[in-house]
Design a binder for these strands. Sequence first.
DNA 1: ATCTATTCCTGGCTGC
DNA 2: TGCAGCCAGGAATAGA
Length: 263
Amino acid sequence: MPELPEVETVVRTLAPVVRGRTIVEARFLSPLAAGGRPEELAEALRGRRIVEVRRRGKFIVFELDHGVMTVHLRMTGKLLTTAAESAYARAVFQLDDGEVVFDDVRQFGRVEWAEALPENVARLGPEPLSVSLAEFSAGLKARPRAVKPLLLDQSFVAGLGNIYVDECLHRAGIHPLARASRIGRKKVEALHASMREVLGEAIAAGGSSISDYADAQGRAGWFQRFHRVYGREGEACMHCGGAIQRIVVGQRGTHFCPRCQKR
DNA sequence: ATCTATTCCTGGCTGC
DNA sequence: TGCAGCCAGGAATAGA
């Protein structure tokens, strides 16, 4: 499931190929990918030039010569520059030089277009790689809710998903159900630092490929080899040797070490 | 403000 | 071997 490091990797591998190219035609093989309005979307995108491609949270933002196209990969989405790598093509962007295929097994992903940056992107919280300790700390202090659901809330910080929240909390030694406002200064600093470390390392590894994730060339990432808690229920904690536990928090599978991450 | 439950979707897994 | 049933989960949404 693409989170910040995976989306960042897609953007880095995609941008050099599509920057400056023109969308000759956008074809939606599944209307779901276009949010149920494939004709309208295809019309809006026809003839548009891609000025720049960037990431905001988990969104891929295509700045066009008129308007903005946003793509959210959700669970199983991919943006591929080689059709040969696509098994579940939902949309094809024919460029003046080359093509981009939006591939998505489970069809949760969406392509959208708007005149300006859409509200769902505009209201995202700060980027975890650039938010200051002061702002992050103040944000936590103001919320009495459990820290894991808070970190998953894209209006609080944008880009973390289930895997990386678990990994960050483990590295910082914070229980996923800890009340955000009651986390001590040292642990808050550790969490702030762990976001940079974990996300930075994951980007360097090309992301985590748990099931479907691939970059724009169809290549898998390898950060899953370095996961310390996610998907390791019952296995030994790399820090203390205790058994990694799995619980459900906010309907999400949550992995942590009960010895390193006390309540 | 925070919480839970529900919806979307389908390949892959479990268990019989 | 076959098949029903369940699971994974990001985000939007409704209701408590």
